[in-house]
Computed example of a mutant assay.
Amino acid sequence: MDQRNVTRITQIHLLGFQIPLSITFLVFFLFLTMYCVTICGNLLIITLVSYSKSLHSPMYFFLSQLSICDILLSTDILPNMIRAVLVKKTIMSFSDCLIQFYFCVITESSESLLLTVMSWDRYLAICEPLHYSLKMNYQVCCILVILCWILGIFLLLTYTLTISKLQFCGPNIIDHFFCDFDPIMQLSCSDTTIVRLEVTVLGFIFVVFPFFTIFVSYFYIIATILKIPSSTGRQKVFSTCSSHLTVVSIYYGTLACVYLAPNRGQTQTLNKLLALLYTVVTPMVNPIIYSLRNKDLKKAIRKFINNVLNIHFNKY
């Protein structure tokens, strides 16, 4: 093994998007706007759930936790990406690169588990309404949310520590806008079999099993809805879970595009655009979907805005 192979990487160069100089500020403004919309939209959801008594229910409590995940994910990815648009390259320490990767995976995994818990909540509300208040009380909701975060943090810490023990011999350039798993593994000159096996197992726990659980839950939910005699009743019941179903479809649809689609023939630019879907676009559209498709949230938003305006005008 030559000297290059035994030299441990200490810095990472993230290339980001190779954008022509003529549209640099346009792209910078676009990403900055997306980040602001993501933060403001998800903070609005959290504020409304805390502020409005009509939203003090398990469904909206889980939604506020989902918004926290989206804020953490976008904050982990977007600031560095926005900076890379301007300077064309971001230099970060290798430890910071692993930390960014770790927090990205934690938030994505916790979000996957939260979406699963939300589907179970909808299943109980629609299929077992008489037992709903007993099975989904405040204590149960808190325990489920804590479990989602604990599983995400400690199980994923296992293989992140395994990655940190590998030898990385470079080159220290990552042609991506954040430190993702495959770009990091491409820098390693060690055997990555164990790490990839761990990723496969954890992928089953955090992606395959949750998706299967959500699929089964909605199978029973749809079957129950179809048994409702009136079309108005069916539409009213389905409206309570349509937002969640839309978010789930977007979330797992983007993950499937990134990780299940064959990589052969794909350019690195296309890989970046696909990764952009679940790291940037999904956290931004989640609060928009819930706000547009949920009557309770619409009412809470109107009430919140009216109260803010009344307070403002009363000062004058």
Rank of each mutant, 00 (worst) to 15 (best):
L124I: 14
N172Y: 02
T75L: 13
V248E: 03
L155A: 07
S239H: 05
L273S: 13
K88E: 09
Y51R: 09
F238R: 05
I153W: 03
R83H: 11
I301R: 02
Y290T: 08
M92R: 00
V201G: 12
L130K: 07
P129K: 10
M81D: 06
Y278W: 11
C241K: 00
S230K: 01
C104H: 04
K53P: 07
S109Q: 08
V208H: 07
A223I: 06
L114T: 04
S291V: 12
K88L: 06
I174E: 02
K299Y: 05
E111C: 11
H131M: 15
K295W: 05
L43K: 14
L276K: 03
F313D: 09
F31W: 00
I173S: 01
S239C: 06
P129H: 08
L113E: 15
L30M: 07
L277M: 14
C179V: 04
R302M: 10
H176A: 00
Y138G: 11
L44S: 04
V199A: 09
V27T: 05
Y35N: 05
N42H: 08
I23G: 10
V140Q: 14
F238Q: 04
M34C: 10
Y290Q: 06
L151Q: 05
R4H: 12
T33P: 13
L245P: 00
G265F: 14
Y132G: 08
C104W: 03
L273V: 11
T269K: 11
S93E: 03
L276A: 01
L134R: 15
F29R: 14
M92S: 02
C141T: 14
L274Y: 07
D191E: 02
L187W: 04
L255C: 11
I163M: 14
K303A: 05
M92G: 04
R196G: 06
Y290N: 09
L115Y: 04
A125L: 11
Y35K: 02
L197D: 15
M185I: 09
Q266S: 15
L226Y: 02
N80S: 10
K88N: 13
T269E: 15
Q167I: 05
C148A: 15
T267V: 11
C69K: 01
V280S: 10
Y132S: 13
T33F: 13
L124W: 14
S74M: 00
I184Q: 08
T240Q: 02
S112K: 09
S119N: 08
M118K: 06
V248I: 12
V201W: 12
P171V: 09
V117R: 10
N314A: 08
T224V: 03
F103V: 03
S243Y: 01
T200D: 07
C148L: 14
